[in-house]
């Protein structure tokens, strides 16, 4: 069965969300994690892209590095918790600190009062 509410939230057993006012108050945070290869690590795909740019006629590119951009939304009771959760995620799963650096932008999109 498909959740009539659309993309956000899994279908859960029990009462729908509008009958659970407490659940509706959990703030929703929007995060953008940027993962890039550490500067000491060779990026052969970036180098190949730089060479292709020159063939296209775009000259003068000195560096071109390819990374990953991850957008996610997270429910958390407050901003500090959201920050800690996404830092853990970034450090342990989204990026491999041996070869990659990451940076995080976090914003509250809607929900209850900010803690």
């Amino acid at each position: 069965m498909v959740h009539p509410g659309g993309s956000r939230g899994a279908w859960t057993l029990g009462l729908p969300r509008f009958n659970k006012p407490l659940a509706a108050q959990v703030p929703l945070f929007s995060a953008h994690v940027q993962v890039s290869l550490r500067s000491s690590v060779l990026d052969p795909a970036g180098e190949a892209t730089r060479a292709a740019a020159a063939r296209l006629g775009v000259d003068g590119i000195k560096t071109l590095r390819i990374g990953k951009s991850i957008h996610l939304e997270l429910e958390a009771p407050d901003r500090a918790t959201a920050q800690a959760q996404i830092e853990l995620l970034s450090d342990r799963l989204l990026a491999n600190p041996v070869i990659e650096d990451w940076s995080l932008e976090l914003a509250e999109t809607h929900g209850g009062p900010q803690a």
Partner: peptide
């Protein structure tokens, strides 16, 4: 094994792709 941390380092894209 490297992602698990049983061995150090990481395996990355071949130099010539």
């Amino acid at each position: 094994l490297t992602e698990m941390g049983l061995l150090p380092g990481a395996l990355t894209r071949n130099q010539k792709l």
